[in-house]
Write a protein that binds this DNA or RNA. Sequence first.
DNA 1: CACCCCTTGTTAAATCTTCAATAACTCATC
DNA 2: GATGAGTTATTGAAGATTTAACAAGGGGTG
Lengths: 165, 165
Amino acid sequence: MSKEPAAEPRWLTDEEQYAWQCYLHATTLLEDHLDRQLQRDAGMPHVYYGLLVHLSRAPRRRMRMTELAQNMKITRSRLSHAIARLEKNGWVHRENCPSDKRGQNAHLTDEGMRVLEKAAPGHVAAVRAAMFDRLSPEQIRQLADICRVMADGLQPKGADLPWLR
Amino acid sequence: MSKEPAAEPRWLTDEEQYAWQCYLHATTLLEDHLDRQLQRDAGMPHVYYGLLVHLSRAPRRRMRMTELAQNMKITRSRLSHAIARLEKNGWVHRENCPSDKRGQNAHLTDEGMRVLEKAAPGHVAAVRAAMFDRLSPEQIRQLADICRVMADGLQPKGADLPWLR
DNA sequence: CACCCCTTGTTAAATCTTCAATAACTCATC
DNA sequence: GATGAGTTATTGAAGATTTAACAAGGGGTG
């Protein structure tokens, strides 16, 4: 039954193309900018910094690997590599999960906490300078709405389905 | 004069933190999604596809390396590696620039054009499904405005200043 | 218990990106 | 036309990410 290869793809309108170009430029430039800012000031890329932030907010600064990966929207594999690197730096420590012998908890060490606290002000300043100090309060709300819609559409539907491939 | 280390960093408000989280989730998920879609359907990551698109729109399908890098907001180094890979695939061809012996032109080959044309419909569909079919026309305008402001703030001020580090 | 399927987390290899260094060339000035 | 400063593009090495495959444990069913 009807399996034609989409006779006429609906191309983007001029407005959509423009928006798409702006989006790609903004996201690329911002990610690059923050990666460099953090690499310079804290010796790690942006995603790694995000991992420390998440851990610092978790109860007892601990989180299961899978949960952390889900919160950060990255694969478990990527997380494994990242935590391995952060552990080598002494900023995170792995420990076995008591309730599940397969599991691992990532634990933000005191030294990791110090690194985070030292890097945070500069990073917030960079994020502000790039985004929040340039947008109106209304635009910030609009951006949140827009991004929430997009993220919802890209998340696995069932909360427990094979997540991220 | 006044060189204190920013006495009190202005942290993000709750609204700003929420918007930032949404932004990070949406951009991460979308980029991952498109990377996988294109890797699967066209055998290349999203940025490489973008390179082919840009070349296909250039006069005579040719562009100077630096100009292409600037348009794509990536470093020349990254572009060199990427073009080397695309050239190995036979999708792009390098040629010397007639007017500047230092220069190189990247040229989209016929085969590259075919690959692009074959990949385009699926890619547009993915972008639509993730973004444009989920947002209202007004939201699309808002997004473009927001991203333009951010991109402007992250661009080098002088058009000819050492660009992107 | 035995069986099977699912989840958790890691790993190796291939690929991609970043960073710093470099060769080759242009252009302005002397 | 020589000198020197800046531009163009590339390279190798180190670091990061993806992919597929895997070991090991959980948890339900007979």
